[in-house]
Amino acid sequence: MKKTANFTAKTKAIVKKHGGDRSALIAVLQDIQETFNYLPKEAMNTVSTMMGIPASRVYEVATFYNAFSLNPRGKHIVKICVGTACHVRGASAIQDKFEQKLLIKPGETNQDQQFTLELVNCVGACALGPVVVIDTEYHGQMTMNKVDKIINEINKEGAQQ
């Protein structure tokens, strides 16, 4: 119950900040996602009521754009670049390796909510391909060996905290 109230209050503030104009819907949802790390249903309903946009239209936008996630995401977001340059440099093998290592598919979050795996089409760092962006850090010239190393390191850091 408390959580819902929390969603609602923060969402209201976000909508107000954007002035409630209907064209701001995408920007509003982007801010909500930034705040909660995903788009909670309660928040979307609040947006619908406050902005006077039918829930169906809000849900259309939320499901159309890749940037939005309807489920809570993990503490770390692993974005594998599958742009053309990275693809020809072997990104799919790196993807397989991450899937194996984290036991999840792209779009999924692992059991302990540590990692969410996502694919992205070109992060504009093709010189480093294959590239993986974890949270905001770029990891270039990825190898399968590096996948193990990086994930183990993050896990170790997490355990220490």
Binding site: K41, M44, P54, A55, S56, R57, V58, Y59, E60, T63, F64
Partner: peptide, 20 residues
Amino acid sequence: GVSAIGLFARGSRKTVGTPF
């Protein structure tokens, strides 16, 4: 005039339905 249904997702996953 109620917009109860919409078109969700995109590409070959596109579906018609109610929100959520």
